[in-house]
């Protein structure tokens, strides 16, 4: 008997073309494959389509041509197992930290396990739900703020709440769109470490969009560099420094940094 093992790409973009209402295309005939468990940074100048790419992966936008496949299934709407964290936390202002963190579970209960809005498997019970919410709030250091409202939190705490809300749903893909760019430098560092902690030892796939070169190098095992204008070919830099807290002082850092800079300057 022959056992055939193929690494099924978690994310597969095939022949993608996308443009905003009549404008020039951001992507044309674009292909990309991301293996399960990989951490990718997407970097590029503003207007290059990096957030757009993330929204396409999240099922919040549809390709004009081509397709986005996740776990072999064509994405046509937000997929329940894909988590998304945006730059603006997007919390409900009238709900507490605890309620916000549990919102995804409430929505899943509202729809039931229909396979479209919520995963088809057995639903999460109330006890398990509470355990997960408290567990993630604890892990992200905001359990004490459970009954606070978003307006009472710092920006970093709001972003932690948004991360907890996503993680409670136990996604197999985590998409992040410049999640730390509105934060102060030291809080940004803290949260980067937090994301790296989530990633290490998990088989979750991570795609993080950033315009910060150091952030891209710290978080992404592979760096996808996009350019302004039409992206046709994926320009990918492998990066062995991801997750290394001292990445800035390692020998390959300068080389990766300058390769990245060159590609970015070519594309802006």
């Amino acid at each position: 008997m022959v056992v055939c093992v193929t690494v099924f790409p978690m994310i597969r973009i095939r022949n993608l073309t996308f443009a905003y209402g009549g404008g020039p295309p951001l992507f044309e005939g674009f292909d990309l494959e991301i293996a399960p468990g990989e951490a990718w940074s997407v970097i590029g100048p503003s207007g290059c389509g990096k957030s757009t790419l993330l929204y396409l992966l999240a099922g919040l936008k549809r390709p004009l041509k081509g397709e986005v496949l996740i776990a072999g299934v064509r994405v046509a709407r937000p997929r329940p197992q894909t988590g998304l964290v945006l730059q603006d936390h997007g919390l409900l202002p009238w709900a507490t930290v605890g309620e916000n963190a549990g919102l995804g579970l409430v929505i899943r209960k509202f729809y039931g396990p229909d396979g479209r809005h919520a995963p088809a498997g057995p639903p999460v019970g109330p006890e398990e739900g509470k355990r997960r919410v408290d567990g993630w709030l604890e892990r992200l250091g905001i359990l004490a703020l459970k009954d606070h409202y978003p307006a009472q939190l710092s920006k970093g705490q709001r972003q932690r709440t948004a991360m907890a809300r996503t993680m409670v749903l136990e996604p197999d893909i985590l998409l992040m769109d410049e999640p730390f760019s509105a934060l102060d430098a030291h809080i940004r560092e803290d949260l980067r470490g937090e994301v790296m902690g989530l990633q290490q030892g998990s088989d979750r796939t991570l795609v993080i969009v950033t315009h910060d070169i150091e952030e891209a190098i710290f978080l992404g095992e592979k760096l996808l560099v996009l350019k302004r204008g039409i992206n046709e070919k994926a320009r990918v830099i492998p990066n062995g420094l991801a997750g290394d807290p001292d990445f800035r002082t390692r020998p390959p850092f300068q080389e990766i940094y300058s390769r990245l800079r060159t590609l970015l300057e070519l594309g802006s």
Binding site: D88, L92, F110
Partner: peptide
Amino acid sequence: LHPELILSVRSLGAGRRGLFRYVYLPA
């Protein structure tokens, strides 16, 4: 309502009915 709020809640699985119930109505 912030567009990012709507996108976030959609990414949690909310469709039209879910958005109405958990975002637009309470808002």
